[in-house]
């Protein structure tokens, strides 16, 4: 083992790399979540504060699928494990998102932005409150899938297989979504619909339906992140509450509506947070917000935002 010097102080390299790795894992979740917020904001101009609740919903659906026999005794329903949940839960959460857009979100498109924000705050509180009533606030356990039980020995720390998988999967998900929106025909329609909805509609494209599907896509991404989080963090109604505030800060840093910006700043801020845990532990809870303030002073449109 060797030592590393940061700002004139020396640190054990194992501690530094360990925290950076944890930062990378947290950053994977920041990136996946801020990506969804950026997609929704970019296309719908809605600041989706319900994103944290939708992430929590993904984890809850995965937990419920696993515990179907206990939740509905006598119904003969099977227990559905991690791998099917990875597809099923985001689909279920996405469908809920579609209904949410139809029933609620659609009504505030033409109003001041403030109302979309307030509406999604209300929706998040309702969902979190109701699940709290039903399941309590204590975390529900969700086991690591058996394929991922075990650890890599990296020399400076043990990395559980599952966490390595989270890092890899989130990079694939982020890159895939970026490709979908920036490099495909569907994505081109979406971007065009944001620029000039009337014109796109005139070309015979159903813009309201596209907005609904975009919202569903963003929400499904949150649900997917929730399933991936279930084995790492405890499944509880509040699990998305503090996270959503960090995610909003990440989106502001990346440049609101910039998809690549949200991905890059998600991973970057996870790493910065990890590094802060080594250098100045009490600052680790606030470093992202302070960083956001600094970015706004130097570059108000965000790292990759356009004005």
């Amino acid at each position: 083992m060797f030592t590393i010097e940061i700002l004139g102080k020396t640190y054990n390299s194992a501690a530094v790399f360990g925290q950076l790795l944890i930062g990378l894992i947290n950053g994977s979740f920041y990136a996946m979540l801020s990506l969804g917020v950026a997609v929704i904001f970019g296309m719908l101009r809605i600041a989706n504060f319900a994103h944290g609740a939708q992430y929590m919903l993904g984890a809850f659906v995965a937990w419920a699928l696993l515990n179907l026999p206990e939740l509905f005794p006598g119904s003969g329903l099977p227990s559905i494990g991690y791998w099917p949940s990875l597809i099923l839960a985001p689909v279920i959460v996405g469908v809920v998102g579609m209904a949410t857009e139809r029933i609620f979100i659609r009504r505030v498109y033409d109003l001041d932005h403030a109302y979309g924000f307030l509406l999604t705050i209300g929706l998040a509180m309702m969902v979190e409150g109701l699940l709290h009533v039903r399941f309590g606030s204590a975390g529900l356990p969700y086991g690591t899938p058996k394929e991922f039980q075990g650890t890599f020995n990296l020399g400076f720390m043990f990395l559980p297989y599952y966490r390595a998988w989270v890092i890899v999967a989130s990079i694939i998900i982020c890159f895939g979504t970026w490709l979908l929106i920036e490099r495909t025909r569907l994505g081109a329609y979406l971007r065009a619909a944001t620029e000039n909805p009337e014109l796109v509609q005139a070309f015979g494209i159903d813009v309201p339906r596209m907005l609904m599907l975009t919202y569903a896509l963003g929400v499904a991404l949150a649900g997917l992140a929730g399933v991936m989080a279930a084995p790492i963090y405890q499944v509880s109604p509040q699990m998305g509450q503090n996270l959503i505030i960090i995610v909003f800060a990440v989106v502001v840093i990346g440049g609101m509506g910039s998809i690549l910006g949200s991905i890059v700043s998600g991973f970057l801020l996870g790493l910065i947070e990890g590094l802060t845990k080594v250098v100045y532990p009490p600052g680790s809870t606030t470093v992202i917000f302070v960083f956001m303030a600094l970015i706004l002073l130097a570059r108000p449109q965000g790292l990759m935002g356009r004005t």
Partner: peptide, 10 residues
């Protein structure tokens, strides 16, 4: 309380 507060917002 939280759920009702949310419903009031909506």
């Amino acid at each position: 309380v939280q759920a009702i507060q949310g419903a009031l917002f909506v």
